[in-house]
Each structure stands twice: as structure tokens, then as C-alpha cells.
Amino acid sequence: MRYYVIRRLLYMVPTLFAISLVAFLVIQLPPGDYLTAYIAELSAQGHGVDNAQIRALEERYGLNDPFLVQYWNWVSGIVLDGDFGQSFQYNREVSDLMWDRIGLTLALALVTLLLSWAIAFPVGVYSAVRQYSLGDYAVTFVGFVGLATPNFMLALIFAWVSYRYFGESVGGFVSREYADAAWNMGKVLDVMSNLWIPVLIIGTAGTAALIRVLRANLLDELRKPYVTTARAKGLPEWRVILKYPVRMSLSPFISTIGWILPTLVGGEVMVSIVLSLETTGPLLVESLRNQDMYLAGSFILILGVLTVVGTLLSDLLLAWWDPRIRHHHVERA
């Protein structure tokens, strides 16, 4: 097991490197450099920009250095000092702007993940064990529609319904009275009470996908000979199903954390924009539109790293759950 963990941790290194490279690429890609955009903006606001200032800025970001040197400066700044660079648009440290929002995104993704599981597990098992029953058809249909509707559509529909029938304009986690307050119990409770709607909206597609995965796996497993063996021992039917096929079909279920996290983060980004939640989504889009590239790149970097860490956790969980992985057993095809 220890060997497995170490190997798995080592696997992460190149992935993390590649993510940072991609994030930096995103920073570098836009045509013209961000400084030009910044200067244009400053001039537009009526500030004159003199050459000395430009040179100072160029110096600070090492814009004339080769790509790899710039990359190194950026990454080492992050790793050593937690310095993600400067947001041009807000004229503040990126790290000041980012962490609060990342925290909320993370909380949202986690709560959504847990809720998706809590719903998908019983529904998926039911749907497989009672295959072709009325309930199974209903679940399958709802699942299909849930998968097919873009998250932001659901958010829009929700926004429209709540506006139309409840006269409320939705938006925001933090109610007005807590907007500027520091984090305390009241604010946490307030956020919780506003959280469930976005959680439901973001979770729909993921839950539908999880149900489908679990149902398909379980249907495969239910036909396997070891299930008959368990029945032949005289176990009650529910114990047969829960102890053997469900346990087996949960392995792929657990490994779905790896891909459901990126989906959740992506869905969160879209939904937050529609519902104007104070998470990464709106700020990320805004920064991309304004070519505020250090801010955008840092968001992509952190979201990517978080997903990789999530995948690592799911792999470790899987190894703990499934002895075949722990013992490096490769299924003979």
C-alpha cells in the first residue's frame, strides 16, 4: 500500500508540471501582451503613461525574457512566496482576489459531490435491481434529460421561475446584510441557506451520470457467477446484492470522482455566472474577457491542481476499497 501511495504521488509531478505549463500558456497566448492592454486601459482612463513607467513594468514582469525564464519566474513566485502576480484590472494581488472565491467553489463542489452520491447510490441500485420496472424507466428518463440539459439552462429556467412565481431575483450566496461582514457563524449559516439551489442545479448532470454508471455496472455484476454462489449459500437477497455486486460496482463508482470533479468545477463556473454567485466563475470569465491574464491563469492553475488532488484522493480511496488495486492485480481480459 505504501508503495502504491508513493508511486501515485510521483505520478502527480508531471501532471502538475503540465498544468502549470498550460496555465502559463493561457497567460501568454493572447495576441499582443497584457501590458499593451493595460496601457491602453490606463490611457483610456485618462492617465498618461510615460515610457519609464512602461519600462518599469516590463522589468517587473520580465517581459523581454525568454518564455521559459518567464515561466520559471512565475512558478517560483507561486511556490516560494505564494505570489501569483498582479491583476491589472483590479490593480491588486491576484492571491488577494482569488482565495475567497476558490474556497467557495471548493465548498460548492464538495457539497455537490456528496449530495450527488447520496442521491445516485440508492437510486442507481434500485434502478438496476428492478430493471425494466416503472421506477427504472422513470429514473432513466429523468437521468437522460438531466444529462442533456446544460447546467446553465437549468439555472436560467430556475431564475425565470423564481422571478416569475416568487418575484425574487436570485443571485449571490451571501445575503446583503452579511456582504461585508467577516466570516462568522451567522454568515456561514446564511451561505448554507443560499447554497442548496446552486448545489441542486450543478449536481443534476453529475448525479444523472453517476446513476447511469452505477446502474450499468451493477447490471453487469448482477449477472456474474459469484452472485449465484452467494445465493447458493442461503444469504437473503438484499444481503447478496449489497455485499457482492454492489460492492464490486462501487469501484468504478469511486473512480468517477476523478472525472466528476472537473465536470462539477466546470458546471459551477457556468452556473455561478448565471446566478451571479461569488465563486471563481464570474471572475474567471471577466478576467478572460478583459485579458487580465495573470488572474485568469492563476484560476486555471488552481482549479487544475485541485482536480488533480481530488483525483489522487479518489485513487487512494479506491486502493483502500478494492484489494485488486492494492495488490496490483490486473484482470485477465
Binding site: 501532471t15 498544468i19 498550460v22 493561457v26 476523478g258 472525472w259 470533479l261 472537473p262 465536470t263 468545477v265 466546470g266 458546471g267 463556473v269 457556468m270 474567471l284 484560476f299 486555471i300 482549479l303 487544475g304 482536480t307 488533480v308 483525483t311
Partner: peptide
């Protein structure tokens, strides 16, 4: 597959 596709 490990990167959140939408931000990317």
C-alpha cells in the same frame, strides 16, 4: 481528462 475542461 484531469483538467476541468470548461475553464481550459
Amino acid at each position: 481528462m484531469s483538467i476541468p475542461t470548461i475553464p481550459l
